[in-house]
Design a protein around this nucleic acid. Sequence first.
DNA 1: GATTCTCATTAAACCAGTTTAATAAATATA
DNA 2: TATATTTATTAAACTGGTTTAATGAGAATC
Lengths: 213, 213
Amino acid sequence: MDKRLLFVISKIFCSFVENSSVPLEELKKTIRSYAHVSDSDMEFGMKFYKRKTFKKGDFLLKPGQYIEYFYFMKKGCVSYYSMEEGKAQVMEFFTEGSFFTDLYAYIQEIPSESYIEALEDITVYAISKTDVQKVFDHSHQLERFGRLSMQRTFVITFQRINQLRNLSNQERYLELQKKRPELFQRVPQYLIASYLGLTPVGLSKIRKRLSKS
Amino acid sequence: MDKRLLFVISKIFCSFVENSSVPLEELKKTIRSYAHVSDSDMEFGMKFYKRKTFKKGDFLLKPGQYIEYFYFMKKGCVSYYSMEEGKAQVMEFFTEGSFFTDLYAYIQEIPSESYIEALEDITVYAISKTDVQKVFDHSHQLERFGRLSMQRTFVITFQRINQLRNLSNQERYLELQKKRPELFQRVPQYLIASYLGLTPVGLSKIRKRLSKS
DNA sequence: GATTCTCATTAAACCAGTTTAATAAATATA
DNA sequence: TATATTTATTAAACTGGTTTAATGAGAATC
């Protein structure tokens, strides 16, 4: 077999670890924070989740792909970004306890225009889109969880809009420091700048201005 | 009875027209564009909707109020805005066929910080929050409609973020002209400016620049 | 230990907005 | 029809970012 092809295949599959019947406790707990779900419905749902790991620098998603999986972050941090005129535009950082995917492409069933990249070695639980549908068909309560988690996502997205519209860049920087201080430890500053909608130079100026007062 | 009090009361209630068993066909059709709903489930849901009318300039919502109703716009246009440092910040214009409320305050069950104001005489169908819950409890299919309409709202909100982040003000102006040309007929320009996140002066400059090329 | 690479800062020139204030045009009201 | 009010435009001065390019500082690699 062609060595380069083998390399590509290994790149794609190396990160996958097969089904583990193990500790989905956090995931269950997170789901139950949204809606009451009976034990039997919960077990029905859990059996579709598969544990996967990725190495720092691996891509969970690249542009052009249709969205296959919904993820729950067990350990680690990813960036979700698009490329605009050659520059990465970070939409979001997802860390422990988050549900995530390229939700925009997932919902609309269109090819993604974004990247999801592991910023550290990560562990996730993944459920396929078709399995999500099975779970919602099977359980009214889990469908309710789906609705309520979508509401939550809307709230966060809406807050993002309000911040973009009503706060200055400096205020957004301070807000982020207050709300997610851990990000500044684990993510390089130029990605923070991108997330805030500025250039590294712009952020540097803001930091300088702040350090003077 | 004190005349001023009477005036206030009439201001509050004049706009309400009581239950009509009439043409919720558009509403039903819109719901069914999201999910299959049996006739009996649909009838169960429909009986909670009440038709209401408001005059131009009336407020459907003011800051401080908890959200009571979810609306479906039958006829007319409202603006949904907040006040930041004395200036109206228009979040959205809702027109015929839209579901709307202050979704952010509705979901979080917190007092609104926003206004919803009729920009024209309007007719809406309103369902109370408690009735929405009854409907979702009663019907898995209508709960699915709830989930999917929430997804739709997320998509629109997400597009809004992308536009705010990746397009210049001029590009956003042109985009709005292309996507919702009717708005420019029915809404004053300073509200359009606010929606786009600029001052009337800024929008005027953009228009001038465009008219030269 | 020296070299390379990545990331953050600084400087200079630039630009698309802002604010304030005056004016013009359109609309509503007496 | 005249008058008042609201809405849109223009001008001038200002501002907080941008881009480009050079420099500095830390971490990874040879």
